[in-house]
Amino acid sequence: METKKRYISLYVENRIGVLAKISGLLAGKSYNLDTLTVGETEDPTVSRMTIGLTIDDITFEQVKKQLNRCVVVIKVIDISEIPIHKKELLFIKVSSCSEKDKAEIFRIAQAFALEIIDYDRSHVMVQCVKTECANNDMIALFNKTFVNRIEVVRGGSVAIEAISSQDQ
C-alpha cells in the first residue's frame, strides 16, 4: 500500500515514563516513526509531541486510534492535511576546512539563509532551521561538497497549527 509522510501533534501528561509509553506503543505495534519530538507546553502538566511517520492510510488510522486509547494521551491531532508551521533544527559541523571551503560555506549560508554559529581555524558550524525535507537537501548538499567531513545532528520536526491558512 502507498505510504506517505504524515504528522501527528500529541498532547500528553507531562510525567515520568510517558515518552517511553508512547515510543514503546509505536515500536510494539511495528509502526516505524521517522521523528518524535517532545517538550513541555504553556501548561507544565502537559507535554506536546510532534510525531512524523511515513505510513499508509490504514496503518495511520490505527496509529491514531491506538494513541487515542492511551490513558496518558490527552489529545491526538492529525496535522498531516491542515495548515501548519513546521520546522526542524539542524546543526552541521564541517571539519578540515581550507580557506576556500570556508568561503564556500559562507556562500551556501547566504544563499540558503543558514546561520554560521561557530567556527575556528579548521571548522565551521552551520545552524539550519527549515522543514525536515529542506534539511535533507542541505545535508545532501554538504555531503556532496565536503565528502566525509561533516557531522550532523538534527532535532526532528516540531509543528503547530497555523493562525492564517497559509501552509508553511
Binding site: I58, E61, Q62, K65, Q66, N68, R69
Partner: peptide
C-alpha cells in the same frame, strides 16, 4: 466499544 478494534 474500542474504536481501535474497528477496521484493524
Amino acid at each position: 466499544i474500542d474504536s481501535a478494534s474497528i477496521s484493524k
